[in-house]
């Protein structure tokens, strides 16, 4: 039997990647003072923390404090996603190089890149002195970051459309605007809507942590309980947050599946 040899440059690439990964992790680990005994003692310490959380603090007072905070995170995520969706939709048309001018598209993409480079928490930092402590700052931070990510994703969807419908609209006398409305939008809407929902799921996690810097949501509650070493209550915060995220994820995922795949027809 004749088995062809692996090309040499592929072999070199393989070893190069392996070396890169090994050297990278050793260099990083040495810079971070990670020693074997810290690694081996970590599981035990984590177990101590987990066992300190149970039984959970389910007193009425705790529930009354935690549930509104979790709901606030949900509201921030939803409002932020709406802001992101509304603003990113027109921007994504500007950024797509097949429907927009070439130079304009490149410029818009750079702006979107810059927006995306700031994590929500850093944005919240910048906004804190302007809009003050509270959920408004969190909503704006989540919204602005969503414009960046949704704009990029949506413009890529628009770039991948089928040009046929556009041509037929043009040949039957439609204007450039007609092309956008009747050629592009119907093609991209299902995918973009599912991206909006997907972004909502991500924003939910982002808004949960925004409270750490005082921008509203459940994060402040968790960090305070951990600081005061009130582990049962911290455990309650965690469990309520996880439950909320799981529920929202499940609902959103099923809606997304319905949008992309259509109704399942039983034969």
């Amino acid at each position: 039997m004749n088995i062809p040899n692996q090309p040499l440059n592929q072999k070199i690439l393989k070893y190069l990647i392996t070396v890169l990964i090994v050297v990278g992790s050793i260099w990083s680990a040495s810079g971070l003072e990670i020693t074997p005994d810290r690694i081996f003692s970590a599981p035990g310490k984590i177990w101590i923390l987990i066992s300190a959380m149970f039984p959970l603090d389910l007193s009425q007072e705790a529930i009354d404090r935690i549930v509104p905070k979790v709901a606030e995170s949900l509201f921030i995520a939803w409002a932020g996603t709406v802001i992101g969706a509304i603003f990113s939709f027109p921007v994504s048309f500007l950024a797509a190089n097949n429907v927009s001018l070439n130079s304009l598209s490149r410029m818009t993409k750079q702006v979107l890149n810059i927006i995306r480079a700031f994590p929500e928490l850093i944005l919240a930092f910048v906004l804190l002195p302007i809009t003050g402590l509270g959920p408004l700052t969190g909503t704006l931070a989540v919204g602005i970051h969503s414009i960046g990510t949704l704009g990029k994703l949506s413009s890529e969807v628009i770039e991948g459309i089928d040009e046929g419908p556009l041509e037929s609209i043009k040949s039957s006398g439609g204007s450039k605007l007609n092309e956008l409305f009747f050629g592009v939008v119907p093609q991209v809407m299902p995918t973009i809507t599912s991206y909006w929902l997907y972004r909502f799921e991500i924003n939910l996690r982002a808004s949960a942590v925004l409270g750490v810097v005082g921008a509203g949501g459940v994060g402040a509650e968790l960090i305070n309980q951990l600081r005061f070493r009130d582990f049962p209550r911290a455990g309650t915060v965690l469990v309520v947050t996880i439950a909320m995220v799981l529920i929202v994820d499940t609902i959103s995922a099923s809606i997304r599946r319905r949008i992309i795949k259509g109704r399942e027809i039983k034969v």
């Binding site: 310490k45 949960a208 951990l226 947050t241 996880i242």
Partner: peptide, 27 residues
């Protein structure tokens, strides 16, 4: 699915309490 529901910063808070402040908790 379960570890995906907990946001990154929540993990960081939990690990700083468990293994102490510093980059190890971040990792």
């Amino acid at each position: 699915n379960f570890i995906r529901t907990i946001p990154d910063l929540f993990w960081a808070m939990l690990f700083t309490v468990a293994v102490g402040l510093g980059p190890f908790a971040g990792v």
